[in-house]
Amino acid sequence: MPRGQKNTLRARQKRHQARGETQGLRGAQATATKGEAFSSSPPPFGATTQRKRGAGSRGAPKRPQRALPTTTVSAGVSRTRSCKGANSKIEKKQSASQALLSAVRSQRDPLSNAACMLVQFLLHRYKVKKPIVKADMLKIISKKYQNRFLEILKRASFSLEVVFGVDLKKVNLPKHSYILVSKMDLPHNGTVSPGKGFPKSGLLLNLLGVIFMKGNCATEEEVWKFLNKMRVYAGKRHFIFGEPKKLITEDLVKLKYLEYRQVPNSDPARYEFLWGPRAHAETSKMRVLEFLAKINHTIPSAFQSWYEEALKDEEERVQATVTLKADTSAVASGSSSVMSSSNSHP
């Protein structure tokens, strides 16, 4: 083969090799990016979390912007919605909640159907403050699947926690009795307003998570972008959360779980959300992070920089408690000394 043709062939082979290496690197980078996205378990609902310099973020490192996955809460809400309007064994015992949460007998996973029915039953018991026992739960599960009761109960418990913000806890081992406990002390069993409705603690905890991950201060636009991922829209009544705009800008603000204020010097006026005093009193950054980690099927430390901030917050809370106890003891000791001194002088 002439030298010119050999040189041309070698050049062509080198170009092909270089192109292959470049493609391989790109593929590796893409794979690494996907791996990081899941291993770091970014925050929920497909929002982006660019760290802002805002209230409560003094000295905190600026976090890179990153895309976040749609999470189980959205799926949980969708599954709960799919429970709407079917026949149920407890149909006669339930109020309007049954029309919203009764299980659909369809081609879907039968265990999911059973879990959906169980969620409906448990919410009803929670609202009417009646005891929850295993024997009653088994009555609403088909005999065909009763041998998988623990798996069904686990699914129902997870949905109750991430969607409604209530925990299922066993209180009597021999009798297999349970209670539902709200993660937040919202009035009217978590429904906020008297009458019909469902617990709102799950939504509140997610809002607190968004605020925390946005630098402890989230703009109204960021909050609605997050809520829209859950198919929750301003001015459109939601089958679980009711009228969401009123709930988050009025009800939860009046209850002091959220602070809703105008962004300084904004024209036209823009608004932002912060944690309210009751949120600080009833929960913590670590507990909210644990909640979000559970939604994303990971551990709190996977949210590395937020985890470090939450740890620091825990340390500050412990120190504040120790200081308060020391001050209280000092005051009590001083009062005791004064009383003793006055008693020694007739």
Rank of each mutant, 00 (worst) to 15 (best):
K214W: 04
F273C: 02
M230W: 14
R261G: 14
H238W: 03
E259P: 09
Q262Y: 09
P264C: 06
E259V: 08
K214N: 07
E272N: 05
K225F: 12
R237A: 15
E221F: 12
Y260V: 02
L227I: 08
E272F: 10
W275Y: 07
E250K: 14
F273K: 01
N216T: 01
L247R: 03
A218D: 01
N228L: 11
W224F: 11
R261S: 15
Q262I: 10
S266V: 06
P268R: 06
C217K: 04
F241D: 09
F241N: 08
N265M: 10
G235T: 09
S266Q: 03
C217P: 04
L227H: 00
I248G: 05
R261H: 15
E259W: 06
A234H: 02
T219M: 04
M213K: 14
A269F: 05
F273Q: 04
Y271S: 01
R231A: 15
I248D: 04
L255S: 03
Y257M: 02
G235M: 04
R231F: 13
L252P: 09
L247G: 02
A234N: 13
K214Q: 04
T219Y: 07
E243C: 08
L252I: 03
R270M: 12
S266N: 10
L247P: 07
Q262H: 09
L252M: 05
T249N: 05
M213H: 14
K256P: 11
A218R: 06
V232S: 03
H238K: 06
L252N: 08
H238Y: 11
P244F: 09
K214P: 01
F241I: 09
V253H: 08
M213L: 12
S266W: 09
M230Q: 14
V223A: 03
E250C: 10
L258M: 07
V223K: 04
E221M: 12
V223Y: 03
E220Y: 09
L255F: 04
H238A: 09
M230F: 14
Y257N: 07
K245F: 15
Y257D: 05
K254F: 12
F241M: 03
V223T: 08
R261W: 13
M213R: 13
Q262E: 13
Y233T: 12
R237T: 15
L274E: 07
E221Q: 14
Y257H: 04
G242V: 01
E272D: 06
W224C: 04
F239Q: 07
Y271G: 08
H238P: 06
